[in-house]
Design a protein around this nucleic acid. Structure first.
Lengths: 237, 237
DNA sequence: AAGTGGTCTAGACCACACA
DNA sequence: GTGTGGTCTAGACCACTTG
């Protein structure tokens, strides 16, 4: 077992040790991990240090702790993946491609019935946007967005021709929560025309509802040609 | 500000307080959060307690800490979403639907060139599986899977007609890391036949490579009809 | 040079779940 | 009851970074 990191804190080393034993299968699911007092002796440290390591493992879902019973290796039930959905412009620029942006439509209107559903607002004004993101000159994504003007009045004064709405919102509006829905859809003729793909081409649809406290800030649907874009997700943050 | 939870630990309350100030926009991006010593006085507690709250916020990506400089509200750069990809059988059962499973093919073979690429193995034997998952009698997903027999020799003796491979692996094989790739693809005639959908129907493709330490355990691709299945992701791990 | 956060200690009391 | 983990204290030393 070469390659153990030297420059790590003690609680980090304890965590890695236990993690290693779990990952290798040495300590299988439902195995009872030594009590904190035993680990204290083993590592010759205080209980807080041991506790920090075990708490970290609990947060990561690798172990389960029950008072009086002890700490057990968890039986994994799901693949928990961390999906980093970046602002499209930042994503394109970061990958060294040339970013382009075209605003199709920007309207400021009293919320329609659909708008009110998507933004869970009883009434008020919204900004509705349609735009296309380009990477190296090719259409990368078609974006349809609603912004709740009751929550983000400043959005009414922004000209989204110069700055993509996602980037503007990310930088100017604090948000606390978001839900994503990822599906696959066939391009209709309109979508196909916007994205320069054939009708019926499979597209990845990423929908996102963004909250601040209990109020919805924005709803967005981004459509990516299926052959041009995939979401990559790594296991656990 | 009603509704503050009473039965929470102190570090939890501190974390929520700060979280609330950030979410509400009161403390915007790049705002300097009070020093730990100030928070100690404000909450009349020890530094460790304050530190625990701030460390938690750091892990969640809401603040950034720099020695000598202080703690600052982070500028969010990505939407980090936690994607829980459950074992399909568990998922179907949990949603109250009837689960069905059909094994199409199970072969035990010397790894082909493709197999070796997917599993990053120089040589050895693999199990290759094709199967269909059903929910309430309708095809929900087409699954193609490779299992590295060098790493999971027990898989050679399993009859996957009675137990879906995903469920078996989840319960029997410890794994430490996984990568996911999510794309949209058009169904070819073969896929369409297996899933009882029309050719060209958009499908959600979820590919997963699973590691244990540095060895790859399994590769799987699951295809869901785009109109039958979406992935839901919540903000934050 | 000084002040920040990172880490750690050696105790302590408590709630809770199990025997 | 008893022993577990959950939480907290009042200190301490250190590394790092910035003024």
């Amino acid at each position: 077992m070469a390659g153990t990191r030297e420059n790590a804190s003690l609680h980090d080393r304890i965590r890695r040790d236990i993690e290693g034993r779990i990952m290798s299968g040495e300590w299988g699911p439902a195995f009872r991990i030594p009590y904190e007092h035993q680990l204290m002796e083993e590592y010759a440290c205080s209980r807080m240090t041991v506790n920090k390591a075990l708490s970290s493992l609990t947060e990561r879902g690798l172990v389960e702790r029950r008072k009086r019973a002890g700490t057990y290796v968890a039986v994994p039930k799901v693949h928990r993946a961390a999906l980093d959905i970046a602002d499209i412009r930042a994503d394109v620029v970061a990958s060294g491609r040339r970013y382009g942006f075209a605003l199709i439509e920007q309207t400021d209107r009293e919320a329609t019935a659909d708008d009110r559903t998507f933004l869970a607002m009883p009434r008020g004004r919204v900004v509705a946007l349609s735009c296309v993101h380009y990477a190296d000159g090719r259409p990368l994504a078609l974006e349809d967005r609603l912004i709740n003007l009751e929550q983000v009045p400043a959005a009414a004064a922004v000209n989204f021709e110069s700055e993509p709405p996602g980037a503007w919102l990310m930088a100017h509006v604090p948000w606390s929560d978001a839900r994503h829905r990822i599906t696959a859809v066939n391009a209709d003729t309109d979508i196909a025309a916007r994205l320069s793909i054939r009708t019926d081409q499979a597209c990845l649809s990423v929908e996102r509802w963004t909250w601040r406290t209990s109020e919805r800030i924005t709803y967005v649907r981004q459509l990516f040609p299926g052959d041009m874009h995939g979401l990559e997700a790594a296991f656990r943050p």
